[in-house]
Simulated assay, not measured.
Amino acid sequence: MKVFRSPGRHGYAVEASPFLPRRFACAASQFYGLTGCGSLLVLDDSDSGVTLFRSWEWSDGLFDVTWSETNEHVLVAGGGDGSLQLWDTANHSAPLRVTREHTQEVYSVDWSQTRGENLIVSGSWDQTLKVWDPTLSRSLTTLRGHEGVVYSSVWSPHIPACFASASGDGTLRVWDVKAAACRLVIAAHHAEVLSCDWCKYDQNIVATGSVDCSVCVWDLRNVRQPVARLRAHNYAIRRVKFSPFGSTLLASCSYDFTVRFWDYSQNQQPLLDTLEHHTEFVCGLDFSLHVPNQVTHTHTYTHTHTHT
């Protein structure tokens, strides 16, 4: 396990580069995101440890980050001031573009992965979702329907112009961008849903993580009950991520200071492993797309751990 620390910053999201096997980005804030500034860090994992490649400061907290799927140097971050910023690792000083259409915190950003598509989705505490072109010049559409804060918005890796969102209203929703409409509403939990993610191998499988301490795995063809309900966390689940190397493998991180690994196909004992070396809330989590079983996670004191 390798550790990178950034004093005075609390990590909220981490994402592995889709291009460079040992590079990842971390979105962070001062004072637990309640006040103060934010930082966007680009980090490199080497044999000797995790090192800082590039960093930028922002005037408000940063809560999520996503890499471009077409340009290895470009990434987008979402801020507490309602902004999205387009950053380039070749530019040391300022973002390429800043847009402020959301009226409250941007808590989720994601770059589409389907072939021939190059779109960004953002989810905000203003209860809206917005879809953008890669220049962030202006939003292409605004989608409304959630009755609570939007915590998570993730593109389907299989279906063009389709993404899922999770909200404080307890629902998981599936959206059709071409029709500018919500196609499916799932009452996923009896509590706020803080995260969702699509299975990389099956277009019908989506996972949700909730304040009720459970991870639910859903088959979108039959949503009367989850395929699996995974319980072991003691506090709210901050993020869930499916593995890119196993169709039924996923990870979750929580305010209980742990990261847990699951195989939801194992009905009797789905919990595979638990990492308990954190000393604060674990907020960010991502799998490497290049190195099997390598996971990066960030929490609100020590920024990033890389674990294989």
Rank of each mutant, 00 (worst) to 15 (best):
W125T: 02
L140K: 15
W132K: 02
G123P: 02
R138S: 14
Q127D: 09
K130I: 09
S139Y: 13
V149Q: 10
G170E: 11
I159P: 00
S122C: 10
W125G: 07
G123K: 01
S124E: 03
S165E: 01
G170Q: 12
G148R: 03
L129H: 00
W125V: 04
D176W: 13
S124M: 07
S122W: 00
W175T: 05
R173D: 10
T135G: 10
S124A: 11
V177P: 04
G145Q: 12
A164G: 15
D126W: 05
V154M: 05
S152M: 06
D169I: 06
H158R: 07
A166M: 02
C162A: 09
S165T: 01
S152H: 01
Y151W: 15
L129C: 10
G168D: 14
D126T: 07
T142Y: 00
P134D: 12
K178Y: 11
A161K: 13
Q127F: 08
S139E: 06
R138K: 15
S153K: 03
S122G: 04
L140E: 11
S152L: 05
H158F: 15
V131K: 04
R144E: 15
L143E: 01
P160M: 06
V177H: 14
V121Q: 01
G168E: 12
L172V: 10
K178C: 14
S167E: 06
V149P: 03
H146D: 03
T142M: 10
T171C: 14
P157W: 07
V131D: 08
A164T: 06
D169L: 05
V150R: 00
P160Q: 05
W125C: 08
T135Y: 07
D169V: 09
R144I: 12
Q127V: 02
K178Q: 15
G148N: 03
V149N: 14
L129P: 01
G145A: 11
D133S: 13
V131P: 01
T171W: 10
